[in-house]
Amino acid sequence: MAGGPMYDNRVSGYLYIAPFLIGLATFTLFPFLSSFLLSFSDYQLQDPVQQARFLGLGNYLHMMGDDTFHGSLGVTFLYVFVTVPLKLAFALFIAFVLNFKLRGISFFRTAYYVPSILGGSVAIAVLWRYVFAGDGLINQALVWAGGEPLNWLGEPAYALFTIVLLRLWQFGSAMVVFLAGLQNIPTDLYEAATIDGAGKARIFFTITLPLLTPVIFFNFIMQIVQAFQEFNGPYIITGGGPLKSTYLLPLMIYEEAFKYFNVGYAAALSWVLFLIIAIFTIIAFASAKYWVFYGNEREDEE
């Protein structure tokens, strides 16, 4: 048989990849498909699945008139549009500083990454709640500085700010990617630009930034996807309040499914969230050819 002895024993080959295939089927494909099917039903968590009725596009039509959904969608967009650019800018700034050749810079590179390991965890979110509490660290600092304590978690305008800050605090992973990108830019280019008479700011905007666009693009996609799925912050710190001012879509999906048991509606909301993320990603990829520069010096074009 063609292929030789290596291909004769197919069974053991399949056995080797079986753990992955089983995991994929059980924990990814099955939920993926069943949530899609459930999104067309009125399935309630407390009932057997057999009792679920087919609603067609009922759940999706219901969303159109659901003010809670509209509010949640607005908050989610606001959250994403504020956090993503801020986080990218902040991560790039820190990476830029950490790219200086200074003594002991490796220590700082590690130290600045630590918040990202801890940042998304429940423990930090709980800590966040205490830091922004009425008598928390932030207010104590404000009073010490002569200011008035603020009701961080009770005022709609401030509450969103606290969960935005929690996300910014996790700048490390984006920073590490930026740092790698910065280190990929040859020193020669900076030297050539220096001889050409470009100042520091000019070099940053005409050399560094354009050559960093592939990395910016990558980070942008990752951050968009992650920000739309933010759950820990609102769930633990604010509970979505006050007045649903931090009621992000993932939290609404969770509550619909596990608080109100409307699994069918929650599944439909999940698919809408999925579509929104997909659309943003597609737009980003489509726009990439206008602003992302892939600089690998290859000769395979033209």
Partner: peptide, 20 residues
């Protein structure tokens, strides 16, 4: 004096062309 004001120009080993 700053490199850009010395009246010099330089060709680098890697050419150092701005790729974009």
């Amino acid at each position: 004096v700053h490199p850009s004001e010395r009246g010099i120009a330089m060709v680098f080993q890697s050419y150092a062309l701005y790729p974009h």
